[in-house]
């Protein structure tokens, strides 16, 4: 009888990487793939229902773990969660005025671009600027968390969340301009 994975296990230890914001994605992926080879429901297609169900749970857990670890935003939220901070419980005043102002400014830039393909070049400039901000925000988050500055890292998490949301909106905007719907 196969010993299946327990959902209590920390995603970092499950994927055999150290519990930091800076992660070795290569190792995480190797572990993920080798565990999936072991637990994927396809490996149990001839087995009884309880084993198939257990495989489904283990495989879902692995997918969730790998997705969480490989996405910087999800990884950050997960790490904060391990320190007892729920990122869903946030009020406007936790965010700080500075962050709110920056959000509004960037959003205004996106909203004021010329329509259609004309705005494409400026859109790309904005995209590059946001990408840089994402990278530096991630760096700061890692540092704050390492210093156990939980409030600071929570604020940086929300900054990152906003920047990544903006990145998606920029991409969607670009899709529309290119007629990709």
């Amino acid at each position: 009888m196969t010993k299946f994975l327990s959902s209590d296990q920390n995603y970092f230890s499950l994927l055999e990487i150290s519990c930091d914001f800076e992660v070795d994605l290569e190792t995480a992926r190797e572990t993920f793939l080798s565990l999936q080879r072991k637990f994927h429901p396809d490996q149990f297609s001839g087995c009884d229902e309880s084993e198939q169900l257990a495989a489904l749970h283990s495989s879902s857990l692995l997918n969730d773990a790998y997705e969480t670890i490989s996405s910087p935003l999800k990884r950050a939220a997960y790490l904060l969660g391990l320190s007892g901070i729920d990122v869903e419980q946030t009020s406007q005043k936790d965010l700080g005025m500075e962050l709110l102002m920056e959000q509004m400014e960037l959003r205004e830039v996106l909203g004021s671009l010329p329509d259609g393909e004309q705005g494409l070049e400026e859109l790309e400039t904005l995209q590059d600027a946001v990408s840089e901000k994402v990278a530096s925000c991630q760096l700061e988050f890692g540092k704050a968390l390492a210093k156990n500055d939980l409030l600071g890292s929570k604020r940086l998490y929300h900054k990152l969340q906003f920047l990544i949301k903006l990145t998606i909106e920029i991409t969607e905007d670009e899709d529309r301009r290119l007629g990709l719907g």
């Binding site: 793939l33 080879r37 994927h40 396809d42 490996q43």
Partner: peptide, 15 residues
């Protein structure tokens, strides 16, 4: 062939 057990599952896993 893999799923029915005739062929080793090491040969391919589809995600």
């Amino acid at each position: 062939e893999v799923l029915v057990g005739n062929r080793s599952s090491d040969e391919g896993l589809l995600l």
